[in-house]
Design a protein around this nucleic acid. Structure first.
Ligand SMILES: [Mn+2]
Ligand SMILES: [Mn+2]
Ligand SMILES: [Zn+2]
Ligand SMILES: [Zn+2]
Lengths: 167, 167
DNA sequence: CACTTATTGCAAGTCATTTGCAGTAAGCAA
DNA sequence: TTGCTTACTGCAAATGACTTGCAATAAGTG
């Protein structure tokens, strides 16, 4: 469980899958990237090493990694609609999203495990995972005078045919 | 704040907007639906009363309602990728999603407010909202013998070219 | 009842992600 | 090493879920 490369290779083999050059490339790119990259960002970065890599291969690999629990897909609603991926190597954690600038801050809160377990018991369900996203304004945006009480999800909507503006 | 129809009308007028027949229809459809309908479900239901309603009008109205905080967009990743809408009339609540059958159970946990506030303080940010989704297996699915430790997000991925199957 | 202009229906985009296919190459066996 | 089977890849085309431009309506106002 230490090296994602080997971990992935083992899992692949035990499933009749194959460890290819592109999968290796994607894996190491993933390790080298920080934050919560989109499939496209991973693609662009990886293609620096091998321009022949194809975007659909990135998506396919990411899908498999997600199913294996080696990365966890995230969706920080906001202006960008692309999914992001969290290299969940570290322990479980949660996120704060600034609805104005899109900045994401991570934090971990053990109490959530307890809450999850409690509700699993109360609802008679098995809880395998949870996602908590706090939404609001980061320090910078607040002092920059951004208001945005964020009714919906960080979108700026103007009446008058309701056209969406960018931050 | 009691009647969404009037509430919406007032907000519209104060913004120079207009209360139209289609907006009224969408609003009442929303009230009549339970659960977390998708735009399309709302559309289909509404169009029973007036087949001339257009889907893009539904999307536009839903976008405005979200921005006003009258409904809150939700995204329960899983097989369906469509956004869902929560008529947030009731107080803030959270969700449990069964990754196998898609069932959603709501619950409210006051402790989360506290946690949100705490992290707002610690991270020096203003927290305006939060979303917690618990993921796992509901009672029915568990006793039906579904396994799915859900690595990623409820998708069933088969190696061998990694084709996604439906649950 | 005019009149201004927000809103709608429709058709045509976008954008992110998925898929069909035929060629390519892992990994196992000889 | 060489075959051989078949998983994987690149590419192009397709999907799905919304979004948008535009000309035809129709709220709300005086
Ligand atoms: Mn993270
Ligand atoms: Mn709900
Ligand atoms: Zn910010
Ligand atoms: Zn279930």
């Amino acid at each position: 469980m230490v090296d994602i490369q080997n971990d992935a290779a083992e899992r692949l083999h035990s499933q009749g899958g194959r460890m290819t050059a592109q999968r290796r490339l994607i894996l190491s790119t993933l390790e080298s990237l920080s934050g919560h990259p989109t499939a496209e960002q991973i693609y662009e970065q990886a293609r620096l090493s091998d321009p022949r890599l194809n975007l659909s291969t990135v998506y396919r690999t990411l899908r498999w990694l997600s199913a294996e629990g080696l990365v966890s897909p995230q969706r920080f609603e906001g202006q960008q609609r692309q999914g992001r991926f969290d290299l969940g190597q570290a322990e479980a954690h949660h996120h704060f999203l600034c609805v104005s600038c899109g900045r994401v801050i991570e934090f971990s809160e053990p109490a959530l495990e307890v809450i999850g377990a409690k509700w699993g018991r109360r609802l008679h369900v098995r809880v395998d995972g949870m996602t908590l996203v706090l939404r609001g304004l980061c320090e910078a945006c607040r002092s920059a005078g951004v208001q945005a009480t964020d009714g919906g999800h960080g979108e700026v909507v103007s009446t008058a045919s309701m056209r969406v503006g960018s931050v």
